[in-house]
Amino acid sequence: MISSMILFLLAAFVLITSLGLGIGSVSNPQSGFMPFWISLLMLAFSLILFVTAYRNSSSRVRLADLWHKLHWQKSALAAAFLAAYIFFLPWAGYLIATSVLMIVLFRLTSMKTWTAALGAMLAVFFSYGLFSFILKTPLPRGIWGF
């Protein structure tokens, strides 16, 4: 039900934008032509999904059940750190940002701190070497030029 509502909102947004772009005519379809029809279809199908989900609400799994007995904090934390990583990467550069991220990730998968640090070092070292020297693709540099 929640998913159908999110999709419904997405479709509604696209619909409104498409009107702004101009739909054009059939003989000369404009930029809004495709978004308009696709979003109308999406609206219709998300409504169907909503209705069927609502009808079967007795057999519906509750939202909390989906995460029941799972270590969802791990996934959530990993996602949060990845988001932070993107934010800091252009500033800190690949070497520092990735080292920190890898230590965190290794810790998350319940490794001991020193092994995590060692693993992170090795991983970052090898990936940096592979891309910068062998493949000649420079990885992001931070404000200090590395």
């Binding site: 990467l89 319940s110 992001p140």
Partner: peptide, 27 residues
């Protein structure tokens, strides 16, 4: 898995970046 998963994440990050050399793509 505890070794494998972080490494896969690292590959994903570097892979996404190096196609267009774009931090935006990592996002």
């Amino acid at each position: 898995d505890k070794i494998l998963y972080p490494l896969i994440i690292l590959f994903c990050l570097v892979g996404a970046y190096s196609i267009n050399n774009s931090v935006f793509d990592i996002g």
